[in-house]
Design a protein around this nucleic acid. Structure first.
Lengths: 109, 109
DNA sequence: ATGACCGATCAGCCGTTACTGACACATTTG
DNA sequence: CAAATGTGTCAGTAACGGCTGATCGGTCAT
């Protein structure tokens, strides 16, 4: 609950805060070095969790948590590995990444 | 310190984490609704702190703190108001915003 | 079947960050 | 001058988010 400023009542009527929820949500996803690095690494094809974990020097469960957030946002897809059923490969959803980029462009562009 | 995985030693040599620090830093700035809204509002010319504070329903000192972060990042400039010396007007630095956008594009693009 | 490996989920801890309240300073107004 | 207004700064607090440890299910090898 914001406080009532003594003056500038008319300004509150004229100016209204823009809707930036989409861009802010995607920015919060990118604002983590592990998640951002994952998205960059997945540009050259799918990678399994153990590869990403090794590349960033992060624990497997930690990387898995980050991948879950990217998956819930739709930025990455899971593609089971046909060769070794234990490994789970992740790949970028380029269309979703494009819309996310446009949402960010709506703030900075 | 990450744990030593028993396998995949060779993968650690081949894959290396990309450098995403710039994009992550700017994403952290945009990942706040007040800061993102400020950047959008400043697209149509400069605004003083009291206007921004009223538009978002946030306290003045809170908005001032957010503006300090945007200012430290170089995304906004201060332009003292000639009419009323008490008010401090902020305006977007379009060039800095463009470079920040390109840093984000380096992750999602 | 037993053990090793890969991955997912969850409670708990902990560090970062936004918010609050109070104060100080400058400027305008009466 | 004194009072009011606009802004900035800072310590303290609360909330959010990432990391950890533990555990479980699923798959492959022997």
């Amino acid at each position: 609950m914001p406080i009532e400023l003594p003056v500038l009542q008319e300004l509150r009527m004229e100016l209204r805060p823009p809707d930036v929820r989409d861009g802010v949500a995607t920015a919060a996803l990118i604002a983590d070095p592990t998640r951002a690095g994952i998205l960059v690494m997945l540009r050259d094809g799918p990678h399994c969790v153990c590869e990403l974990s090794a590349a960033f020097g992060e624990r497997q469960n930690n990387v898995s948590n980050h991948l879950a957030k990217l998956r819930d946002a739709g930025l990455v897809r899971v593609s089971r590995g046909p060769s070794d059923g234990r490994r789970v490969y992740y790949e970028r959803d380029d269309a979703a990444c494009a819309t996310a980029a446009s949402a960010l462009a709506g703030i900075l562009g």
